[in-house]
Design a protein around this nucleic acid. Structure first.
Lengths: 408, 408
DNA sequence: GTGCGTTTGTTGCGAGTACGAACATATCCG
DNA sequence: CGGATATGTTCGTACTCGCAACAAACGCAC
């Protein structure tokens, strides 16, 4: 059954070390504890003991090490109203921060997010034109330099930079393969930004990061399997969480559900295919039919909700809901998720007629999968991408608190 | 950020113990070593040392324990032609077996598969009619009793039964939610078979098990992210492997790619939706157009290959290839797999015109994802479901060799 | 306010596992 | 037949977690 002589030219298929060594246990436990307080918020040591199943003494040692690493802070509990010796509360340190960058067609947004999950700052620098990759990198680097020099306290530790890109991003290296609305092709954005800032930098698709953000801190808290679909001005993006982990695919491009077929006789999409979800469902049409400006997307909810039956608005909403349902049929059948989270104008569509959407999805999808799924609107607003990008930057610290913290 | 008072009614979201204890390390290492020899075949102890990165002495201890548990056998190597002291070869024991059951519309097939991956026996018991669930369970239990009494040696250890069902199966409990072609609805097949045989029994969708089989032993050896699509007499099934692990979804129903939309003006599928891949692409039509009988599916390859351009056969092949390409577009965009494996008549379609299929998929899918994907035909033949079902039964042993082996 | 029960932090000890070094052994090669 | 090489074997060490005993801090009852 085995290949007796594996070709020496190809890299060995097995990773360098599969075996669980001992420091691995420690690492895994440190990571578990840190992830717990990071995602679920401050917790007492006794709560951590319960949650992990580890011994009191072990938790004490682990928390002690995390404190020494400067990643968490212990504080006296305030009136817990419980019998027994009070247990110190472990809080992720707000002095450990991630920086985030989000290039858009008319601006570059930079954020500062603490390990406690709080968005500490957000700076939006508008650009005259659609920024090129080097424009965006320059603007981001300048804002970051400003922030580090003036705004951030000297004892704040920056663990890295996370970039949320509205386009296709290679998993390793953070190369933007294609960002149609920015006009970027094969831009090594993460590398450029890393050398400009001197900070470890990683980039990923914005909707994938949105899925992580919603899954950990938003509408999908505690949900293992969810699909996030976002309707933005530029199109429909998607991200998938399976068992709590982001689905990346082999190159990091996975999750592009916006380009599933929903209409065989539909229009040709900019991607070259016909009848993608993205071509049949769009914010622009909703704005047009409601008479809103491009900048008034935040009023979409009210405009859609107030539509009279039979009106052009109602007809268009219904049309888009029905196409969305076709895409979601495929999602339900393929992923069998616990939850589908809809953001942006897809959230508005859902809010406009949740029952119709749910009924249409249910009637088209298979038994089993259709019974377990819930459809909800996204919970995080403007902070979503900032939080998601920060999670990207925090990933190495959360995976290996000891060495990552020491390295920075 | 945290919920200070989690509702006591809901089950705690965290599993009983997240913390890595010590026996976990041992377990993980035992599992790693066993999985290595199980999937990649016999390996010398020194090869295991290299593959795992563990110490020689550690590997010796681990292999020793696996030998004591009766899961592997050590043997002297035959002429390795290498300098240095020869390293004993570790082989998974063929005396540890899994039983497999595969109910079909006209038969029930039972198999015996060794931990070494070899299919030792296969018994196909034809049924007069489409078997009900209790029919199938009775037949399977009878065959299993026969096998254990007569065919299997007394020192053979049966670890469990794996069932491959052509339908939707609940992940926990092995309840067949819906098997349209068998006419089964909500049948607790695994539980019935477990009580009839006294063996731990688990069931899963046949295409999902096919994906596991192809991924570990077939066309997808060594591939982490793959999608398997199988074209059978009864329809199109699918299974997905992500990072080497089967994608189950929250209820175990994931992977039903046969019901993605490929034609908005298509026929109504038995699932209730319109224009599913399964309705536009089918073995029956191919057999009809080639003038073959239902039982002659094995001659499909030759019939399709020999079609003259413009002939009805060629036209139908082209039509089905084009619809298949639409479904694969969605697969590529959503999963970004390294490999797409096509089995059954979908493999025949692929073989009939691989270039057209590849071109059609490529032209419709997104950059990035489309560049990394390969399309291949399935490698395993009739053994695929037997091997896949056996993997299901072996799962507990592979995950925790020590306790699972002791339990049986 | 004082004592009791309860809960949890703290400390020291013990168990289990993997690593590393030194030695033993088996092969190939000249 | 001896040297070089690679690997099995053995033993001591380091590390981490669990456990038990003790100490500390809180609520509660009187």
């Amino acid at each position: 059954m085995a290949d007796p002589t594996p070709a020496p030219t190809t890299a060995p298929s097995t990773p360098p070390d599969l075996g669980a060594r001992f420091d691995r246990v420690r690492r895994a436990n440190l990571a578990t504890v840190l992830a717990l307080v990071h995602v679920d918020g401050p917790a007492s040591r006794s709560a951590l003991t319960q949650a992990t199943g580890l011994n009191r003494s072990t938790i004490a040692a682990l928390v002690g090490e995390l404190v020494e690493l400067g990643l968490v802070v212990e504080s006296d509990p305030v009136g817990s109203n419980k019998v027994g010796r009070p247990s110190p509360v472990v809080t992720p340190s707000a002095r450990v921060v991630a920086l985030t960058v989000n290039p858009e067609i008319d601006a570059v947004t930079v954020g500062v997010v603490g390990l406690d999950g709080a968005v500490q700052h957000r700076v939006r620098r508008e650009t005259a034109d659609v920024p090129t990759a080097s424009d965006a990198a320059r603007v981001a680097a300048a804002v970051i330099a400003d922030l580090r020099a003036e705004t951030l306290a000297s004892d704040v530790r920056v663990v890295g930079v996370g970039v949320a890109v509205p386009g296709l991003v290679d998993a390793t290296g953070g190369v933007v393969r294609l960002a149609p609305h920015l006009g970027w092709v094969d831009e090594p954005f993460a590398a450029v930004l890393a050398s400009a800032t001197g900070l470890p930098t990683d980039a990923a698709n914005d909707a994938s990061l949105g899925a992580i953000a919603e899954g950990r801190f938003g509408a999908g808290r505690g949900v293992g399997d969810l699909v996030f679909l976002n309707g933005g001005a530029s199109g429909v993006g998607g991200g998938v969480l399976l068992d709590g982990r982001p689905m990346t695919g082999v190159g990091g491009y996975a999750g592009e559900i916006g380009h599933t077929l929903v209409n065989s006789s539909g229009r040709v999409c900019h991607c070259g295919a016909v009848g993608c979800l993205e071509t049949e469902v769009g914010q622009a049409r909703l704005l047009a039919v409601t008479g809103l400006d491009r900048g008034q997307a935040d009023r979409l909810d009210a405009a859609l909700a107030g539509a009279e039956p039979g009106s052009p608005v109602a007809v268009e909403v219904r049309r888009q809901i029905d196409f969305l349902a076709v895409a979601l049929r495929g999602v339900v059948n393929a992923f069998n998720p616990e939850l589908i989270v809809l953001g942006g104008f897809l959230g508005s569509l859902h809010a406009a007629d949740p029952d119709r959407l749910a009924e249409r999805v249910r009637s088209q999808s298979l038994p089993g999968a259709r019974d377990g799924v819930r459809l909800v609107r996204a919970a995080l607003g403007a902070d979503r991408l900032t939080i998601g990008a920060a999670e990207l930057a925090f990933a190495s610290v959360l995976a290996d608190p000891a060495s990552a913290a020491r390295a920075s």
